[in-house]
Each structure stands twice: as structure tokens, then as C-alpha cells.
Amino acid sequence: MQKALETLEKIFFSDLIGGLDLYTIVASVLKFIFVIIVLYFVVTIVRMIYLDIRQTVRSTAAANTYIKLINRRDQFDFPVREIYYVDDGTTIGRGKGNSIVVNDPRLSKQHARFILSEGRFYLEDLNSTNGTRLNEIPVDQPTEIRNRDIISLGLLEFMFINRGEQ
């Protein structure tokens, strides 16, 4: 160990040319690299944030369709939002990978999916344990949903709003 350190010291701190040692050269080059790395780090984070914002702006543009909770929120002991925006392929469930995550124990990990086809929205149940109902009718195959339809999953009840239809 001791010997290795001495060798290191000798390599980096002995004069090469005109009083310059290897350490000085390395440190002088690295100082530029450090600034570049940290600046790039900042840029990366700003890009991530930008991506979020852009996604938001897009979903705002597509904000014609959303589901609105009609239960009182404080009757649940898990967080749930008032409004979720809906697009083609939006999934709802308990698992982390869903577009809409609600931690309701009555929901399946992957519970239901919205499908947009030829300008119409369909609701599909993904073989959930407790099922999905549309206007109190169980959904066993992809069913078209229209403005102001009521979707029930577990105890949750949402009203489907499609402003394009209005």
C-alpha cells in the first residue's frame, strides 16, 4: 500500500517539463470537464422538466376528455383526484405502471382501459376482480362511452366528460 502510494506520488508530482507535473496538467484539463459535466447535468434536469411541461401542455390541448369524481373525496382514506384526463390507451388501476393510479384496495392492479377509435371512446375492463360498470351495467367487452356516462370501479364513481361531443 505504502509503496503504491509513493509510486503514485512520484508519477503525478515529479517535474515533467518546465516545472509542470502530471497532476497540474490533469487538474487543469479536468477543471473544464467538471464545468461541462455539471452544466450538462443542469441541462439534463431542465430538459426533464421541459419534457414534463410539454406533456402537460399537450394534455391540456387534449383536455377535452376527462373523468370527474362524483364521490366526496373525504370518504376515502386514500388520495384520489377530482379530475383525470383521458386519452387513447389511458389505463386505470392500483399498479404503478398505470396512467391513472388510485390506491383503492378494491381496484385490481390493472383495472380498466380507455380506447379511442375513429373518434369514439370505448371502455374496456382488464379482467378485474371486482369488475367495471358503465351506467350500472357491467362492462364485459369494450363498450362505447359517451358524454356524462357514469363509470364505477370499486367504490369510485366517475362521470365521463367529452367536450368534443357537446
Binding site: G18, G19, L20, D21, T24, S28
Partner: peptide, 9 residues
Amino acid sequence: LKGNVLKAD
């Protein structure tokens, strides 16, 4: 750089 390092100038 040199000025900083030159040890016995």
C-alpha cells in the same frame, strides 16, 4: 499555470 507551479524559480 507555470508561475503557480515553478517551485524554485
